[in-house]
Design a binder for these strands. Structure first.
Lengths: 197, 197, 197, 197
DNA sequence: CCCTAAACGAGACGGTACGTCCGGTCTTGAC
DNA sequence: GTCAAGACCGGACGTACCGTCTCGTTTAGGG
C-alpha cells in the first residue's frame, strides 16, 4: 500500500549506528545545532546518507539520539544522602550550577533544548529517557527528607523540584543572571523555607 | 570600496517595513519558526528579498522584530494593586497561565524561545525590550508589598519573580505538567511562604 | 588470490537467467533503455541484484543478452530465391521497411542501437551474433544473383548490402523521411542500377 | 496555478550560458556522453545547478546545445564546384571519411548520435539546425550537376545523398568496416552509376 | 542419502548524482 | 537611491540507483 518500506532492524549495522551518533555529537559541539547538516554527519561518520535516512526520520532525531546514547550506560543515579537535606541539596545544586556554567556543555545542551521546544514527541522522549530517571532519584532523596521530618509531608515533590531547578534553568536558558554557588544556595533556602514542615 | 554600503534609514519605506513584519508574524503562526523562509516572507509581503536583507541581518531578526512590533504601542504596563499581594498575584499568575495555555500564543511563543536560546544578542534584546519592562512592573508591585510588610524587606525581587514564573515557564516549554489555575495558586503560595517576613 | 572469484556456470540457475532476460525485455519495451535500472530488473524478475552482477558485467550486457535470447531459436535464415533478384529484393526490402515501421519494434530496437554506438564490445557481439548471420544469408542470395548474371561479378557484396540497407537504417534512426514500400523499391532500383553487370 | 514559473530570458546571463556550453563540450570530449553529469558541468562552469535547470530541460538538451553553439558562427557552407561532379564528390567524401576517422570527433559525435536516437525532438532540431543546412549545400552542388547533365534530371536528391552518406555513417556507427579513401571513392562510383543520366 | 559448498533472494551498506529549495548577493528597470 | 522582481552562485535537502557486501535459504553434486 504505502511506499514506506520498512527496513529490517536485525540487519542494522552497529558500526554505522555508533559512527553516526558520534559524528552527530561532535558536530553539534563544534557548530551548534542549526549549522549541523545530515550531509556533514554522514561524511564525518563515513556513512551513506541513505543509512541515516533509513533509520532516523529527521536531523533532530539523530541528534537527540546522540544525547540519549550518552547516558545509555549510566545506571540508576543515586544522590547523596547524609541525613541533612539542606547540605545535600546545596551540594547537588552547586554541582548543577557548575555543570550549566561549563562551556563544554553549553552548545550541546542548548541544541537539546532547541529541539524539545518545537517537537512534542522529542520532548516526551526527553522526559522519559533523560529527565525522568534523574527526577526520580531527586524525588527519592526528597521523600527521605520528608520521612525525616525535614520537609512538609504533603509537599508536592514535582513542585519542589521545579522551585529548585526551574529558576536555574531559566537563568541559564535566557542568560538573565549569574550562575554562582550563592545562587544555588539561595534556591535551596527558598525551597526549604517554602516547604518546611 | 567595500561592498558594505549602509542604507539611509530616512528613505526607508514604512509600507514595506510593516508588510514584512506582518507577513513574518502570520507565517510564524501558520508554519512555526523553522518552516518560515525569507523568500516566503518577501513573497507574502510583496517585497523584494533585498529589501529584507537591507534592513535585517537574519531571519531571526525579522521574526524577532515582528514580536517587538506587537508590543510597540503598549505603554507602561501597570499591574493591579488592591493592597492584598496574595490576591493580586493569584490574579496575575492565573492570567499568565491562561495566556500560556492559549493555542494562539503557542506557536509564536515557542518560535520566540527557539530564537533567544541560540542567539545571545536576541536574548539581550528580548530582556531589554520585552521581558524587562514587564518585570519592572511586576517588581514595582512586589516593592509595594514589601512596603506594606507583606514581603520580607530584604527579599531579592528578581529571585521572587523567578520562583513565581520559572516553574510555570519550564512546565510550558517542556510540556512536563498541566497548566491550571490551581498550579498558579500553588506557585503563589510557595513564593509567599518563602519570602514571608 | 584476487577477490574476483569466478562463479561456476554449471550451477547457474536457468530459472533466474530466463526471468532476468524476460524482465529486461519487458522493461525496455515499457520504459526505453535509459530508464531501465538493474534494481528494477531484479525486482521484476524476483531475483537478487547479486545474481545479475554475478553473470553480467553491466546493464547493457543484460539488455543486449535479452535481445540475443530472442533470436536464439532462429535457425539459419534463408531468403527467398525465385530466380528474379529484383523481385526478391523488393520482397525483402519491403518486409524490412514494414518491420522498422512497426511500433512494437521501435523502443527495443532503438535501445539496441543506443548501446552498440557507445560500446565497441557490444557492437562486435552485435555484428557477430545478430547482424552477421543475417548478412550472410543476404549475401548468399546476392551471390546466387551474381552466378545468374543479374549482378556484376566483381561487386563487393558488403557494399551492395550497405547501399541497400544503410539509407533505410539512417532514415529510421534519424526519422529523416518516410519509410514506405515505394522507398524500399527505390533502394532496390538504385542498388541494381549501380551493380548491374 | 502551475508550479512551472517561466524565467525571463531578457535577464539571462550570457556569461553563464557560454560557460555552461563550454564546460559541456569539454566534458563530453573528456568523458563521453554517459559519464557527463549536470553537477560536473555546473562545477566546471562555475555556475549554480539551478542556472542549468532554469534554462535547459535535461542533460541531453545542454549537450546538444553545446554542439549547436559550435556551428553558430558558420555562415552558409559552400561546396567546391569545379564542374566535374565526380572529382568534387570524391573530394568531399574523402574529407568526410577523414573527419569520421578523426579521434577528436569520435567521442562528441557518438554522444550526439546517442541523443538523437532516443529523443525525437532533438532529432528534429538536429535535422533543422545541423544536418539541414549542410544537406542544402550538398544538394545545391548536385543540382548544378543535374543542370550540367552529369546526373539524371529526375533523380531524387535526398536519395542521392543517402546513397552517398548513409553507408559511410553506418560503417562508422557500427564500426563494421574500414573508413578509407578507397571506400569514399567506391561510394561515389556507386552513386554516379546509379544516378547517371 | 547426507554434507557441504556454491548460488540464491533479500536487502543494508558507502557512494554519486539527481532535481528542488532556499540563503544571501547582484542586476535591472520603474518610480 | 530605494524599491519589486528575480537571476545568480552555492550548498543542503531527501530520493533513486549504483555496485559491493553480508545475511539466512535453497539446491545440487561428490563422498
Amino acid at each position: 500500500m504505502s511506499s514506506t518500506r520498512k527496513p529490517n532492524p536485525a540487519r542494522r549495522s552497529e558500526r554505522s549506528r555508533k559512527a553516526v551518533l558520534a559524528a552527530a555529537r561532535e558536530l553539534v559541539s563544534e557548530l551548534g545545532y542549526a549549522k549541523v547538516t545530515i550531509e556533514a554527519i554522514a561524511a564525518r561518520a563515513g556513512v551513506g546518507k541513505q543509512t541515516i535516512y533509513r533509520w532516523w526520520p529527521s536531523k533532530g532525531a539523530v541528534i537527540f539520539d546522540s544525547f540519549l546514547a550518552l547516558s545509555e550506560g549510566e545506571e540508576g543515579v543515586r544522590l547523596p544522602d547524609t541525613g541533612d537535606i539542606e547540605a545535600d541539596l546545596r551540594t547537588v545544586m552547586r554541582a548543577t550550577v557548575a555543570e550549566f556554567a561549563d562551556p563544554a556543555f553549553e552548545t550541546p545542551l542548548r541544541a537539546l533544548n532547541t529541539q524539545i521546544i518545537d517537537d512534542p514527541d522529542l520532548a516526551g522522549l526527553y522526559r522519559e529517557k533523560l529527565a525522568g530517571p534523574l527526577d526520580q532519584a531527586k524525588k527519592e532523596r526528597l521523600r527521605s527528607a520528608q520521612r525525616a521530618g525535614q520537609l512538609r509531608a504533603d509537599a508536592d515533590l514535582d513542585l519542589v523540584l521545579e522551585v529548585l531547578y526551574a529558576p536555574l534553568y531559566q537563568r541559564w536558558l535566557h542568560r538573565s543572571g549569574p550562575l554562582s554557588p550563592e545562587y544555588a544556595d539561595a534556591l535551596v533556602d527558598v525551597a526549604l523555607r517554602a516547604f518546611a514542615p
